[in-house]
Nucleic acid binder design. Structure first.
Lengths: 244, 244, 244, 244
DNA sequence: AATGAATGAGCTTTCATTCAT
DNA sequence: AATGAATGAAAGCTCATTCAT
């Protein structure tokens, strides 16, 4: 258990999420946080271990000793770094936040010459990939968010952020006459985001069989585009049978 | 040894779901079930109480004594009727199964003269209403389903059942040239079902603010119809820009 | 469960053991005892059931409901007849007392013309048979006797009684010069009784394999006779042919 | 991670009995065992306490908290060292195993110049002493052995071992013409072992009155020797040909 | 920084027993 | 006489957490 070399930067830096939702976590960081390199490494190992354990057993079933042991530590060593299970979950969640919001920008990138359709397809793939990978832990986070204020804040923020960006994007398309004007951008994004995320969670889990990933990407993209009644710009009038 | 007198219909009927997923629950019913009117009432009260408590605190946080007390009973009285928390959750879930599958038929009812669009709108409303109402407990069930085989069986069955019916319906529409033929019926239904259910769960919870219900129904329906590229039948040929 | 015809006389009569060791049991009999024929039958069925259950599961593992159910009764019906598990065990034990002391008389029967050796062989067989049959329940009784005063009294009385009779017999043999005079009659009987009883319990349980029964009888008898250095009378030396 | 420092020899040595019957106990030792001196002491105290409590109250009546409290610990501290009551009983039993098998060798020691008679007398004393001392706990062990596989294995092994050794010894005596050839060595040993052990248990318990110890040793020895029809070697010829 | 020992709160579960019917 | 419902006491066990080293 000695190795675990790079102190994953993501965890070693105080997570840079917009609103800082970490009363206790922050205290920790300022007061109790690891002062030595070795400490930082151990801490990172714990976060990693926590994620794995939560994914495997869920939050409630996960024991602090499970986490500690997987990190090659004693039960009680855990308390050097975190105050509680909730505490470490917050850290796990913060790290995740980064990962998941990565690809979204593509859709909105104004410098891109891609058609909306292409952008959506690209974004879809990226997002589904991310969710397929992180579905388990997101599920955990979401579950906990229902009973833990801090986690809820983090989760909401993440979700709302995503929806907001998408909503903007849809609005633009509507303004340019490229999307069904009768759709409410926010609600639509919400619904479609839910669809995307949950579908990934539920039917794309790698070891849970489900569908072929590429086929799924294609189908979800099509549904998405259909739903928006998306038209490609500048082409005088698309006929709808080439939608793919 | 009277022949297990009429139990209160709502909660106590042995749920008539396709596959019977109730090893212990069934035993209970046959062997240990309440034999007196009073017992049946108590049992029903317990199921009711359990649902409420689970909704409030989630499954793991819920204590058996919470349930018992809410039903006006002692802790140990609980064990007259159920073997465990899981056991009573199964009962709660079974009851719910009924409720939720109620409105689906409308979509498929062949005797109806309504257009597909109308049917979908109707089904959507019914379904969203049901889910809005039962979202909390469904969430609980779904959570537990990840770690409990029996609950998973029940939940899967419920979900799969729903998807299958919808898929059939979509296939018919496709065959009649009324829906986008490029969509895979099963995957599409899955995705759209996920969207509907989860949107309801997440954004329509009564006390959780969110959107205006009627507006939401309208939007979700529109998205749904758009996604399918649904055309109304018998009209010689619709041009697709008036889809609204 | 209706049959169970003859109210086994042994249980229906207040057991006729020397000292009456049944404070509560007696109360029951006088105060609460079954007044109707049906009651007496049920009571007998309970005693029978108790014996069976105790044999199967031991005293501590046995639940009152096990007993009641085996007697075709409800848990709570048990309390019409007995105050507790201990209470019913006392009854079981009392019944047993009779059975087990049955064959002993043969050894002492003065009218018999058999040689001591023959008498011992006969007594041995009878006793081993009885113990083989009742070893399980005796074991239970003995176990309980360690923690329950009343049961202990009953058990001791039974055992002491047996030892005393045997000791008398040995003493006579010694006086007639037919047994090793260096043996202390009481201690010897005790030791040999222990041997007999326990050997039966431990190695002759019917379903527990062990030895062939007849061979065992023969061997134990031989050991017994050897141990006493028993000589047959009527050989030149001794003239007292009145073995009694 | 120190190498499991020297545990208090009496209770803590991994018992060196022939077959290792300690699935969980062994795990414990390797994985969970006390790693500090203090821990080892506590563990030893627990084993000691357990023995005492079991002797006083019997296994079923003994509460884990009784044991813990007697060792000056909390209820839950117990679970640092043992998984269950059964678990600690196994340890108690293993320790006992040593003690009880100590003196047997004397009988068989070929270098000894003592006569068989003398050897038996010596062995008898040792064994009776041991049993007198440990009768209570052996009783507990035996009781539990009826319902616990592991304890049964340990107990059986102990008993069988003993019987086997004695049987060999008897066989030798028979071959040398020093013991009644009509006796079956195994059955005889079994019976005589039962006699010895149980007599000690039943009649020699120190605080339970009974007989004078030395007298008892003498008597049991005599019975034993009689039973075998033991002759001293080298004495020309015993004339008692009426042994059968 | 890290560990092992120890604690205490709390939960599930089992059962003998009582009560109303 | 018999039942089902209900209770209360107690047990076993788990775990997060603290403490001394």
């Amino acid at each position: 258990m000695e190795p675990a070399p790079q102190p994953s930067p993501a965890t070693a830096t105080p997570p840079t999420i917009g609103v800082d939702v970490r009363p206790r976590a922050q205290q920790r960081w300022d007061d109790d946080g690891p002062r030595s390199r070795r400490g930082a490494e151990t801490r990172a190992r714990l976060v990693e271990a926590a994620k794995a354990v939560f994914e495997e057993k869920g939050f409630h079933e996960a024991r602090i000793s499970d986490v500690a042991e997987r990190a090659g530590l004693t039960h009680s060593a855990f308390y050097h770094y975190f105050d509680s299970k909730e505490d470490i979950l917050l850290e796990v969640a913060a790290v995740l936040d980064h990962t998941l919001n990565a690809g979204v920008d593509i859709i909105l990138d104004p410098s891109s010459t891609a058609t909306p359709r292409e952008r959506i397809a690209a974004a879809m793939r990226i997002r589904l990939e991310a969710h397929r990978k992180e579905a388990r832990i997101m599920n955990v986070i979401e579950q906990v968010s229902r009973h833990n204020e801090q986690v809820r804040a983090l989760w909401t923020q993440f979700y709302k952020q995503h929806v907001k960006e998408m909503a903007n994007s849809i609005e633009q398309l509507q303004r340019r006459g490229l999307a069904d004007p009768a759709l409410d951008p926010v609600m639509t994004t919400d619904a479609l985001a839910v669809m995307t995320i949950r579908f990934a969670e539920q039917s794309l889990l790698q070891d849970d069989a489900g569908y072929d990933f590429d086929a799924a990407v294609e189908q979800i993209t099509r549904i998405y585009i259909n739903a928006l009644q998306l038209r490609d710009p500048r082409k005088p009038r698309r006929r709808r049978d080439d939608t793919g």
